[in-house]
């Protein structure tokens, strides 16, 4: 009985809440209309949201740490001996490619993230806010850029441990990563579109896989296209991943190929123009 009387007041105090009319009224009384935030600041705020989500659900960083490590180890030791005679030698050729493959594959989580987010109703609130419309998606991609950089750095570190010695030095490697992450940002708009278009995250994943596997494997990532049949070589030649890999390889090897870099930048611009527009059209209509 004595325990009941001592615990009761605390439980009622914590569960019984009565709205504080005066306090709430005071907050509401300030009808100050803050100025509309700029497109940039709204995007950054949404980027901050993505970072907060990473802080609260750190497991989601698994795919940008464990997955890339697995990719490097698997392909280096699987193909190394057969293709280049030695693992270290193959690594000089493979690492930039595997970095591109991993980061490009990780971009598909963007679409799944958008799809899950939209399902939940938070986006209904965002879309009633008077902010620059693409900010929610641009901000989400800012958060993803952080994930891409993490994945690239993880792969680089594993590569360095295994014996990757890029001739391009620190600057070359850095520029290579910047180009890769920049292209991935653009590439992600394809997935935001599918994230808005398709009904479930599973279908987003299905479509992503169907696009990503041919794009990454039917390229110059693992073998030189010269060894492929002519029809396949035609595909690898127009495959943007081939050009991206060539550009990143060139930068990291200290022999940058201007043509390839321009090709990649133009492709990135076209992807944003096309899929960014489609995404925003879907976003406004959803």
């Amino acid at each position: 009985m004595s325990t009941a009387t001592t615990t009761e007041p605390t439980t009622t105090a914590s569960t019984a809440y009565a709205p504080a009319a005066d306090r709430l009224g005071a907050v509401l009384a300030s009808r100050e209309q803050p100025p509309r935030p700029s497109a940039w600041s709204a995007s950054l705020t949404f980027g901050w949201r993505t970072m907060l989500k990473i802080k609260h659900v750190p497991e989601q960083m698994f795919d940008v740490t464990a997955f890339p490590i697995m990719m490097v180890l698997m392909f280096t030791y699987l193909f190394g001996g057969a293709l280049a005679g030695s693992v270290t030698e193959y690594l000089q050729f493979l690492l930039p490619g595997i970095m591109v493959t991993s980061v490009i594959m990780i971009t598909m989580y963007t679409g799944m993230g958008v799809n899950i987010d939209i399902e939940k109703g938070v986006f209904d609130r965002f879309r009633t806010l008077p902010v620059w419309r693409p900010a929610a998606l641009v901000g989400a991609l800012f958060g993803d850029v952080f994930r891409y950089v993490t994945a690239a750095v993880v792969i680089l570190v594993v590569g360095l441990i295994l014996g990757f010695r890029p001739d391009g030095g620190v600057l070359g490697v850095l520029l290579g990563i910047v180009l890769l992450v920049g292209f991935s940002f653009a590439f992600s708009w394809i997935w935001t579109m599918f994230g808005l278009l398709l009904r479930s995250e599973k279908s987003v994943m299905g479509v992503s896989m169907m696009v990503l596997f041919p794009l990454t494997f039917l390229s110059n990532v693992f073998v030189e296209p010269e060894t492929m049949p002519a029809w396949l070589r035609v595909f690898t030649e127009v495959n943007p991943i081939t050009h991206l890999v060539a550009a990143v390889r060139g930068l990291m090897a200290g022999s940058p190929d201007g043509g390839e870099i321009v090709w990649v930048l133009v492709a990135a611009g076209v992807i944003i123009a096309v899929f960014g527009t489609l995404t925003m059209r879907l976003y406004n209509r959803k």
């Binding site: 705020t45 907060l52 989500k53 965002f126």
Partner: peptide, 19 residues
């Protein structure tokens, strides 16, 4: 229409910043 993964404060500050 709030983010379940975020804390109460984070949710409110986020929307306030966007406003």
């Amino acid at each position: 229409s709030v983010d379940e993964d975020l804390s109460g404060t984070e949710n409110l500050v986020l929307i306030a910043r966007l406003l």
